[in-house]
């Protein structure tokens, strides 16, 4: 039962970080600034500001924090009635994943010149991470919407106990191997222009981890080995274990994002296994036509699950 407890604590911590994140803002007069829709930034002031100066678009210099030399073009600036809220509209969509720096050259409030104000607008990073996690778990669930890892999926989803064992083993190996793969890819393969080796290296790392866990677990905790040992080799024959490092490379995630993504993939697989095994335990009691018995009906069930999971498509959080 300890495992479930630690899992629950982890989920709680993730939720807490997400909920308690605060918008970063600078400048004492600027209370809050955040992105609005796709091409707007909204700024809240502590008091009413001078409309004429603030609505002049030459008064602003906005850039992505990664390239300060490229100013972003502003289409218009509009102040609200009470003079406390300003909306900047840009000519192009903003890349909201990177922080933006806004410089207001002159700010006048009630006849008092406040001088230059500069602050950073960023989307909450915890929210972004959370959306990666949920994305990998539900929206792009590897089993039901990406159709990967099916052989092992159908092999181990007959019983709930098997499904849980496989899910836990898989998640652990997944996270470890994705992190090592990420490190080797970014610090060894990329500098040496050896990207074409990625498949060999990634699968090599997975088999290495499987072997290492096999050896160590056998000695340290024979009881755990008896429970999870048989799934270790199955991990190796699972497409997801290779697909995750490859997708991390394609999406260009950094270390934290890679960790969250692999964790999401592992948990998503766990979830899929658990759902499927619950249904299949019930299916055994059902009256199925003889030629559909066994895997055939399992596939059709998985198809129905797939249809259900299509409902998540297009969902975006934060």
């Amino acid at each position: 039962m300890v495992r479930y407890k630690s899992l629950a604590i982890f989920v709680l911590i993730t939720l807490f970080i997400t909920v308690s994140n605060v918008w970063a803002s600078a400048g004492s007069f600027i209370k809050k600034a955040s992105f609005l829709k796709k091409d707007k930034i909204i700024i809240f002031f502590a008091g009413p500001v001078d409309k004429k100066i603030v609505e002049d678009i030459d008064n602003y210099y906005v850039y992505e924090s990664t390239d300060p030399d490229i100013p972003l073009k502003i289409k218009g600036a509009s102040l609200s009635e009470d003079g406390k809220t300003l909306i900047l509209t840009f000519t192009e969509e903003l890349n909201q994943h990177s922080p933006h720096v806004v410089v207001i050259k002159k700010l006048v409030s009630a006849g008092r010149n406040l001088g230059v104000a500069s602050f950073t607008v960023r989307k909450s990073y915890a929210g972004f991470l959370f959306s990666i996690l949920i994305g990998a778990m539900l929206v792009h669930n590897f089993v039901f919407t990406k159709y990967l890892g099916l052989c092992v999926f159908f092999g181990t989803s007959k019983r709930k106990a098997t499904a849980i064992g496989m899910g836990i083993t898989f998640t652990i190996v997944m996270v470890c191997s994705a992190m090592i793969s990420w490190f080797l890819y970014n610090y060894v393969l990329k500098p040496l222009n050896l990207q074409f080796f990625q498949v060999v290296i990634f699968i090599g790392i997975v088999s290495l981890i499987v072997q290492a866990v096999d050896i160590i677990l056998r000695k340290i905790n024979p009881f755990l080995f008896k429970a999870f040992g048989i799934y270790l080799m199955l991990v190796l024959a699972n497409c997801v274990i290779l697909a995750v490092p490859l997708l991390i490379v394609v999406n260009g995630y950094n270390a934290i994002e890679a960790f969250v993504f692999s964790l999401g993939a592992g948990l998503g697989y766990f979830l899929a296994l658990f759902l499927m095994s619950s249904v299949r335990e019930k299916l055994e009691l059902a009256n199925v036509p003889p030629s559909y018995q066994g895997l055939s009906i399992a596939f059709i069930t998985a198809g129905l699950f797939g249809l259900a999971f299509m409902g998540f498509s297009g969902m975006s959080i934060f």
Partner: peptide, 29 residues
């Protein structure tokens, strides 16, 4: 590039190979 690849794979293989061998030795059952 080919030489670089050979060297990198060789080094990785040797490092991990030795690591595994040590682990196997230490945790021998």
């Amino acid at each position: 590039i080919a030489m670089g690849g050979l060297a990198v794979l060789g080094v990785i293989g040797i490092v991990f190979g030795i690591g595994l061998a040590l682990a196997a030795h230490k945790f021998h059952v």
